Simulated assay, not measured.
Amino acid sequence: MVYIGVALGGMLGSLLRYILSLVTANILNDGFPTGTLIANLAGSLFLGWFTSRLIEQKKLDAVWAAAIGTGITGSFTTFSTFSLETLLLLETGHIGMASLYILISVLGGLFFAAAGYKLGSKNKSRPGVGVK
């Protein structure tokens, strides 16, 4: 069942990322990979929170934890697309934009994962507070 959960979650997460990329490209149309950046930062925040709040506290069945954490979040965020978009920016001479993208992605991802984890940890030691 875990494999099915990851597969179904993966379909949903990749579809959400694709839609986000299309929407941001149509709105901004500036050549900067905003959709992937938003997906990766939001996914980092969510996965930090999700891990701290639900997985570590064993508040979810293993199938749901894998479906949401690995399936949806893992396919919503993407290192391969980040890498390719960075390479394309570099190859087209947008060195400053590529550097900014790398900096925001790496530092922002770490910051948002830590923030999500901290948010998930908040009040978890107090009985009756948080997700049940």
Rank of each mutant, 00 (worst) to 15 (best):
F82Q: 09
L60T: 10
K122Y: 13
T78I: 10
S105M: 05
P127T: 14
I55H: 14
E85C: 05
T36D: 02
Y3T: 09
L41W: 02
N123A: 12
E56G: 14
P33R: 10
D61I: 12
L107S: 08
N40D: 09
L28S: 12
F50R: 02
R126D: 11
S52C: 04
S99I: 10
G9S: 06
L88E: 14
S52P: 00
A115H: 09
N29R: 14
T51G: 05
T24K: 01
Y101F: 15
E56S: 14
S14W: 01
Y101S: 07
E85V: 09
Y117M: 13
I19D: 08
Y117E: 06
T77M: 01
T92D: 13
P127Q: 14
T78Y: 11
L12D: 00
S83V: 06
K59Q: 02
L100N: 12
S80N: 03
I68N: 03
T73P: 02
L20S: 12
G120Q: 11
F82C: 05
L119G: 06
A67M: 13
A39C: 01
L110W: 03
T34K: 03
G69V: 11
G35L: 10
V6P: 08
G9P: 02
I27A: 12
K122C: 13
D30G: 03
R17A: 03
T34D: 09
T34L: 15
I27R: 10
A42N: 04
V23E: 02
Y18V: 04
T36Y: 00
T24F: 09
G13S: 11
R17S: 01
